[in-house]
């Protein structure tokens, strides 16, 4: 017999994969953001390879956040959210499982695609490995922080932009340590593991804290 949470997990993955789920669109958006940057700053490969980690991280940040606005909105629209509130399973765990499924469907593809896109920015192999590892460690924090914004704006008609405004300031530490660990991988004064450990700590802390904040926001929703 499957538990309620695993049933929820598989349902979320199946919806993300299906028509209009938008699971793959996040990667395309990521690709577009990365390829827009050279248009803006010029095709100088030396410059691009130096700022490549920053470009990839900002693109991953935006792709993750913009994909998140449907996380609770779709459930609020079709009434599923009300029903989830009547389940015996704690809402915090429901939020956590939804985030996990969302991370697998949208953020994990970004991690996989990042080294390929790094090639177009003329990044070194060590730097490519660094960016993938730092995204793997850091994107859970982005998804969890974004989930708070998604919960706060669920049920609002124009919540998407508001959510980004609410959450982007909170993501600055993740961005700082994400880029610095990717940069540290290709040399520099700081050893790779120090920013990487801080980044992992940020992800773990948000995994522990964000479900409570998001669940509280969902309960406070006036619907």
């Amino acid at each position: 017999m499957r538990s309620p949470l695993s049933a929820l997990f598989w349902r979320e993955l199946r919806i993300a994969r299906s028509v209009g789920g938008g699971g793959a669109m996040g990667v395309v958006f990521f690709l577009i953001l990365v390829s827009l940057t050279p248009f803006a700053i010029g095709p100088d490969l030396n410059l691009l390879s130096r700022i490549g980690p920053a470009i990839l991280w900002i693109a991953a940040l935006l792709a993750t956040l913009l994909g998140l606005d449907r996380l609770f909105q779709a459930d609020a629209d079709d009434g599923s959210l009300d029903l989830l509130l009547t389940a015996a399973t704690p809402l915090e765990l429901i939020v956590l499982v939804k985030c996990l499924a969302h991370w697998i469907a949208t953020a994990l593809p970004l991690v996989v695609a990042s080294p390929l896109l790094g090639l177009t920015l003329a990044m070194e192999p060590e730097s490519l490995a660094g960016i993938s590892l730092s995204l793997l460690a850091g994107t859970p924090a982005l998804t969890m922080l974004g989930a708070i914004g998604a919960a706060l704006t669920a049920g609002l008609r124009r919540g998407g932009l508001l959510m980004a405004v609410l959450i982007l300031p909170l993501t600055t530490p993740v961005l700082i340590f994400g880029v610095s660990s990717a940069a540290a991988a290709s040399g520099g004064t700081v050893p790779f593991h120090i920013p990487m450990l801080i980044l992992s700590a940020l992800s773990l802390a948000s995994l522990a804290g964000a479900p409570f904040a998001a669940a509280a926001a969902l309960r406070a929703r006036d619907a």
Binding site: R2, S3, P4, A7, L8, R11, R14, I15, S18, V19, G20, G21, D77, D78, G79, S80, D82, L83, L84, T86, A87, A88, T89
Partner: peptide, 28 residues
């Protein structure tokens, strides 16, 4: 202890009727 049936049906249009019901059975 409550079943709530409101204006919204709480169904995911991409899933089949049976999948929707099986999910809610597990959840509720």
């Amino acid at each position: 202890l409550s079943h709530y049936v409101g204006h919204a049906d709480g169904l995911k249009s991409a899933l089949t009727a049976a999948e929707n019901l099986a999910f809610w059975a597990r959840m509720l």
